[in-house]
């Protein structure tokens, strides 16, 4: 097989996967990426839930519990909340302690902020305008991992790297060595068929939500038009093979 055939093959495999696998950890199995992520998230969640004692919920009084635990899944269905509380039993709270209480929330979450919001200017010169970004839990792909240089007082035994140069070039090269999803919104170019932008669209069953919440996604010119069949200068392992 010539180089070109390998290239085509790899691209087609990758294409069927929906997004470019997160190579640094899952070189062979693209499913691993998501599996790993879920595992990480679950593990974090487990720690968290284990630690979360029940005291945040209101003690004893069911009506109170009802109000405060609106975020609690079991009670969510029962529509217990402020109403049920105030109807009957405005009994005193414990003093000087805060309790959970919030409106019922459901569905996926969409968050903006950081440099992805408003008008901001990037780079020291301020010449690069920022781009609008919305983060959501509706999809779960992953980007490359940045380098982990050793902070002052840390050594390599602690899992960081000491041979490090604090430059953009160093980080770029470091991330180049990984196979991961190209961040089409923030890289000036991505390899062809890198389907990152597709992943950031929303799955069919969220269509209503998307339609309700979003103006058409036209802010990012890089996502528009036909993708050019130029091999990227950076960011994709395929052309090294």
């Amino acid at each position: 097989m010539g180089l070109r055939e390998v290239l085509v093959l790899v691209i087609s495999i990758v294409g069927t996967m929906g997004y470019i696998p997160h190579g640094s950890i899952g070189e062979k199995d693209p499913i691993l990426t998501e599996a790993l992520l879920r595992e990480v998230v679950e593990r974090m969640g487990k720690d968290f839930n284990d630690a979360a004692s029940t005291y945040l919920e209101f003690p004893s009084s069911d009506r109170h519990l009802a109000m405060m635990a609106r975020a609690n899944k079991e009670l969510e269905h029962e529509q217990l909340d402020y109403d049920s509380l105030i109807e009957g039993n405005p009994s005193p709270s414990l003093r000087d302690q805060e309790y959970l209480q919030h409106s019922s929330l459901w569905g996926h979450q969409y968050v903006t902020g950081g440099a992805g919001e408003g008008e901001q200017r990037l780079q020291p010169s301020g010449i690069v305008p920022n781009r609008q970004m919305i983060k959501t839990d509706a999809v779960l792909p992953a980007y490359c991992n940045p380098p982990n240089p050793c902070p002052v007082g840390y050594t390599e035994e602690q899992g960081c790297i000491s041979e490090f140069e604090n430059t953009a070039a160093f980080s770029r090269e470091y991330q180049l060595a990984q196979r991961c999803m190209c961040d089409g919104e923030h890289m000036f170019s991505c390899p062809p068929d890198s389907s990152s932008d597709l992943d950031l669209r929303f799955a069919d069953h969220h269509k209503n939500l998307v339609a309700k919440k979003y103006k058409p996604d036209i802010e990012n010119p890089y996502l528009m038009g036909e993708r050019l069949p130029i091999a990227a200068k950076k960011g994709f392992d395929v052309h090294v093979y």
């Binding site: 990480v40 974090m44 440099a115 992805g116 990037l122 780079q123 690069v128 920022n130 781009r131 970004m133 980007y143 490359c144 991992n145 940045p146 380098p147 982990n148 240089p149 902070p151 602690q158 899992g159 960081c160 953009a168 980080s171 770029r172 470091y174 991330q175 961040d183 919104e185 923030h186 890289m187 000036f188 170019s189």
Partner: peptide, 16 residues
């Protein structure tokens, strides 16, 4: 998921 929150590089320095 590691103890070192060094920012990820992007061409537009988005993660600044």
């Amino acid at each position: 998921n590691d103890p070192y929150p060094y920012p990820r590089y992007t061409d537009d320095w988005f993660n600044s």
